[in-house]
Structures are given as structure tokens and as C-alpha cells.
């Protein structure tokens, strides 16, 4: 039963979704979606606790064993608990508190800059990755390097300053070389993922059930 029931549930849900998508009966579709959305939101909200428990278990373990940088684990737990509790207790657990001044301040002045900082690391990593990988080792690598240089020059305004033809050349690479390749890739990905979906719903793939 451990094996059959989840597979039957998955197959049933998939067939119902397919029927609703194809038949397009609006009222049923909306109610089904609202129901599933609510189940989903409830499940996701409950699952946050599972994540929090795992995070607490891991970091408490690190603090107890006093492993290197255990102070950071304590800080992580403190930040998580304080921000979470503040958000929940601010206007009661069932009220929208996202417009509250200090709650927004934490979002705008702490979370946002931290997020942007992590994203900006890409600028540094791309420099070292490009330096290491764009070498004229063979013909393919040389073609990749030249294409990258043309597109970078065009993107950075410097290319059109040097020669007005950079834009056309970059456009040619993007439209004639890149777009068809992307389409081929997209068709392959679609068919591959469709085969994966079939394996899942036909019960051929059972790794997620621990089988």
C-alpha cells in the first residue's frame, strides 16, 4: 500500500489537471485551483517548520560540539528566531504586517543589500572564470572566445564607440546562431522533461517513495 497509494494519488491528480486544462470548464478549474492553492499554501507553511527544525538541529549540534565558527551558528539561530518572532508577534499571527515600518526597514536595509551583495559576487567570479576558460585550446574554444568578446564589447558601449558594426555583428550572433540553437535545446528539454513526467506518473520512477 505504501507503494501503490501515492502513485495512484499522483496519477489521479495529473489526470484531473490534464482534463481541466483541456476541457477548460472555468468554474471547476478555478475551484480546483483555489483548493489546491490552499492545500499547497498550508503544506508549504507547515513544511517551513520542518526546515526550521532541521536548521536548529544542525546548528545546535555545532554549538554543543563547539566546532570551528560555532559563534556563526548561534548568530544564525538568533537572527532567524528574532525576525520570525517579530513578524509573527507584530500584529498577531493572522494579520498582514508587511507594511510595518521596522519590518520593512529590516527588509529594505538588511535583506536587500545582503541579497544584492551575493548577486554582485558574480562580477568577480565571471572575471576569474572567463580568464581561465577562454583559451585558444582548440577551434571550438576559440570560436567561443571570439563570440564572447564580440558580445561583451557590444553590451558595454565600448564596442559601438570603436566601430559601429559591433552591434550588427552581435545581433547576427544572437539572432542567427544563438536563437536557433536555443530553440533546439528547448525542444529537447521539453521532450526530455515530458518523458520524465511520464516515467513518474506511470509509476516507473519510484525513488521519491524510498523504493
Amino acid at each position: 500500500m505504501k507503494r501503490e497509494l501515492p502513485m495512484l494519488l499522483a496519477l489521479g491528480a495529473a489526470l484531473l489537471r490534464l482534463f481541466l486544462e483541456l476541457s477548460h470548464y472555468q468554474r471547476t478549474e478555478m475551484q480546483w485551483q483555489l483548493h489546491t492553492n490552499q492545500w499547497w499554501a498550508f503544506l508549504a507553511a507547515t513544511a517551513v517548520f520542518i526546515g526550521v527544525i532541521n536548521l536548529c538541529r544542525l546548528h545546535m549540534h555545532r554549538i554543543r560540539r563547539k566546532v570551528a565558527h560555532w559563534q556563526m551558528s548561534a548568530w544564525c539561530l538568533f537572527v532567524m528566531a528574532s525576525f520570525g518572532l517579530y513578524g509573527i508577534l507584530l500584529k498577531g499571527p493572522f494579520q498582514a504586517g508587511n507594511q510595518e515600518h521596522w519590518f520593512r526597514w529590516i527588509f529594505d536595509s538588511v535583506l536587500q543589500p545582503a541579497d544584492r551583495t551575493m548577486f554582485s559576487l558574480l562580477a568577480f567570479y565571471i572575471a576569474s572564470a572567463a580568464y581561465r576558460s577562454f583559451r585558444m585550446r582548440n577551434l571550438e574554444a576559440t570560436v567561443m572566445m571570439v563570440t564572447a568578446a564580440v558580445l561583451m564589447l557590444n553590451q558595454a558601449s565600448i564596442g559601438p564607440m570603436i566601430w559601429s558594426g559591433w552591434g550588427d555583428m552581435a545581433g547576427w550572433f544572437m539572432d542567427i546562431i544563438n536563437a536557433p540553437a536555443q530553440r533546439g535545446l528547448a525542444i529537447g528539454i521539453f521532450l526530455g522533461s515530458y518523458a520524465m513526467v511520464l516515467r513518474m506518473f506511470l509509476g516507473l520512477e519510484r525513488k521519491h517513495l524510498g523504493l
Binding site: 483541456l22 476541457s23 477548460h24 470548464y25 472555468q26 468554474r27 471547476t28 478555478m30
Partner: peptide, 10 residues
């Protein structure tokens, strides 16, 4: 609901 329910095969 935006409009009345509507049926269609596809």
C-alpha cells in the same frame, strides 16, 4: 467569476 461558466472540449 468573470463570466458565466463555459464548456469546451479544448
Amino acid at each position: 467569476l468573470a463570466s458565466g461558466a463555459k464548456w469546451g472540449f479544448l
